[in-house]
Design a protein around this nucleic acid. Structure first.
Length: 588
RNA sequence: CGGGGUGUGGCGCAGUUGGUAGCGCGCCUGGUUUGGGACCAGGAGGCCCGGGGUUCAAGUCCCCGCUCCCCGACCA
């Protein structure tokens, strides 16, 4: 039994000044965590209980799919990460240190290499596969900006697992097993989640999904369909081909547009000097051509122009995901100098494309549909072209998903409007494929005695982040409201009496009986502390059931308060143990 | 890494033209209280983020760092 008179905890009356988001504020105020270092937190007894419960649920569900728990050191030698190039790739995000002999070490930000090598070390036959291994480990990342308490720290607890299979079918099964396990984990934690399609990035065409807790303070933006169940990370949305424009348009004509280098100035000028009869010109009538530079891993560069409707922004991350492993950036002045044919502010597709005068590759966003007419640059200063039709007056080299996805865009799956939401990434499942196995030489002999490279999946859950996410999802102005599965206790007994009076005696007896039923009991047995303080602390700490033993004892009752529902029910004392036990076991 | 803010007992904050640091909460002692963060009296507790400087004198002014928070860039 935890006694508040003894428990190592101190609640704060005021919000800590350095905490902004609710989870951070409340976890500190309620005495669950303390900041100990930039991006690092100490877990106090209450917080540690919650963390361990989350960890245990994760462990049980991983074990249930046959994954086996191992544990690596966090302190790792440089060589391994050198092999996969991540010693450099990770850059400043890696915590590096040097031992007394001058050897380089790092604190593990993630453990793909170590797991791959471990399997290579022990296994060498297809008969050994499939195998899935996991660990629950402290990870280190020297984040540019740790923020929001536990949500983004530099040291955090993560469950990472890796599957090893002989072929794609096996990988697919391992992936689905993990995905299913993750769904069970988040359901048991009581944490709302959405599964969104994620970018697979450099690894090429493989499947990757993120589990996001849909919470405003999250750092990830995703879209979801207002009609069907489609959802995706904004960078991963693929619009696909849209219906062609079947309208007929006048022949293209060039107009003088002095001092109109921006979309806004162009639209203003057109409305003043070339007003349409049917409606006003809008930014969406214009075709914006953004000049980018591709940089391949080997250092070679290529200029690329992407055409998007003028009312839309270009999403570089989204483009980058499609040109990976190349990097993308906007073309700088030096780059423009090499292309005298590109007149900044007045670029039009007439001079773009592989076959054109500039020879610059030209790609269109799918929103610029076939047959559509546009106002766009005339490729000379102070001139634009009206009614330039895609397919009639110009052709692109292809399409690329380029615009920043916005609310109201059509759902790629059903066509209904998409909405934009924010979320906290709490899990990620990813078909890695053979990238690490290739680089680290993880092969096994197959049925025919042939060496084959093993295919891998990697799967992560941010355990400490999950605690913060749950706090974000379940709290109100006055405190936390833990889901039962991970609450630091089942019941919080508030004793409002004086030392050794009838109330205290009855409360102690109830607490002991509850504990005898197998419940975890926290009792506020502090003497000389006013009832108001005890009520406030109970609400702040957020244990789902609060049992108040106080003045209604005279009528033979105690109060059972539900922290989630906010209800307060009088229950006869002799019924209290059965009642509270039933509540705790109901799981709700 | 860029922009903005910030840093003073455990927590929240004040500190005037530069003159040797204060309030509330919390903590300790005694007493009165006990159903919504009680009251009285008495106490303890400070490298004013750090380092340089200006000055007879610096929490306060100047320079250089750092911290934390927010926005952006980056990031699983």
């Amino acid at each position: 039994m935890m006694r508040l008179s003894q428990l190592f905890v101190r609640t704060l009356r005021d919000d800590p000044s350095d905490a902004e988001v609710p989870s951070h504020r409340l976890l500190v105020r309620a005495g669950y965590i303390r900041r100990a270092a930039p991006g690092g937190y100490t877990w106090l007894p209450l917080g540690w209980r919650v963390l361990r419960k989350v960890e245990q649920i994760v462990r049980e569900e991983m074990d249930a799919i046959g994954a086996q728990e191992v544990h690596f050191p966090a302190l790792l030698p440089r060589e391994v990460y050198e092999t996969t190039g991540r010693w450099t790739e990770y850059g400043d995000n890696l915590f590096r240190l040097v031992d007394r002999k001058g050897a380089d070490f790092l604190l593990g930000p993630t453990h793909e290499e170590m797991f791959t090598l471990l399997v290579k070390d022990l296994y060498s036959s297809y008969k050994d596969l499939p195998v899935s291994l996991y660990q629950i480990q402290t990870k280190y990342r020297d984040e540019a900006r740790p923020r929001a308490g536990l949500l983004r720290g530099r040291e955090f607890l993560m469950k990472d697992s890796y599957s090893f299979d002989i072929d794609e079918a096996g990988l697919s099964k391992s992936y689905n097993d993990h995905r299913d396990a993750y769904e069970r984990i988040f359901k048991r934690l009581g944490l709302p989640y959405v599964i969104v399609k994620a970018m697979s990035g450099a690894m090429g065409g493989s499947m990757s999904e993120e589990f996001l807790a849909p919470i405003e303070v999250g750092e990830d933006t995703f879209v979801r369909c207002t009609s069907c169940d489609y959802s995706a990370n904004t960078e991963a949305v693929t619009t696909g081909a849209l219906a062609a424009d079947t309208g007929t348009y006048n022949a293209a004509s060039t107009v003088s547009t002095p001092n109109c280098p921006t979309i806004a100035s162009l639209v203003d000028y057109l409305n003043t000097h070339h007003a349409r009869t049917d409606r006003a010109w809008a930014a969406s009538d214009t075709l914006k051509n953004v000049v980018l530079q591709l940089r391949q891993p080997d250092g070679t560069t290529e200029t690329l122009v992407v055409g998007v409707p003028g009312d839309r922004e270009v999403d570089l991350k989204r483009i980058e995901a499609q040109v990976s492993p190349a990097d993308i950036e906007t073309l700088d002045d030096a780059g423009f100098a090499k292309h005298p044919g590109l007149i900044r502010g007045y670029i039009g597709p007439q001079v773009l494309g592989k076959e054109s005068t500039t020879g610059v590759r030209y790609l269109l966003d799918p929103a610029v549909v076939a047959g559509s007419a546009w106002v766009t640059g005339a490729n000379e200063k102070d001139s634009h072209v009206l009614n330039l039709v895609n397919g009639r007056d110009f052709n692109a080299d292809g399409t690329i998903e380029a615009v920043e996805v916005a609310a109201g865009d059509p759902c790629p799956s059903c066509g209904a409007a998409l909405e934009i939401a924010r979320g906290i990434e709490i899990g990620h499942v990813f078909q890695l494929g053979r990238k690490y196995a290739d680089k680290l030489g993880l092969t096994v002999l197959d049925q025919n005695g042939k060496q084959v490279v093993v295919t891998m999946g990697s799967y992560g859950i941010g355990v400490s982040r999950a605690v913060a996410s749950i706090a974000e999802a379940f709290h109100d102005d006055i405190g936390l409201k833990w889901p039962r599965a991970i609450s630091p206790a089942d019941v919080h007994v508030v004793v409002t009496g004086k030392k050794d009076d009838d109330i205290s005696v009855a409360a102690e007896k109830l607490a002991a009986e509850l504990e005898a039923q197998g419940l975890e009991v926290l009792i506020d047995d502090r003497v000389g502390v006013s009832p108001g303080v005890k009520f406030k602390d109970a609400e702040l700490m957020g244990i789902p059931t609060i049992l108040v033993v106080g003045k209604s004892l005279a009528e033979g009752n105690v109060e059972v308060r539900d922290r989630h529902a906010g209800t307060n029910e009088a229950i006869p004392v002799n019924n209290a143990v059965a009642h509270v036990t039933a509540l705790a076991r109901s799981g709700s």
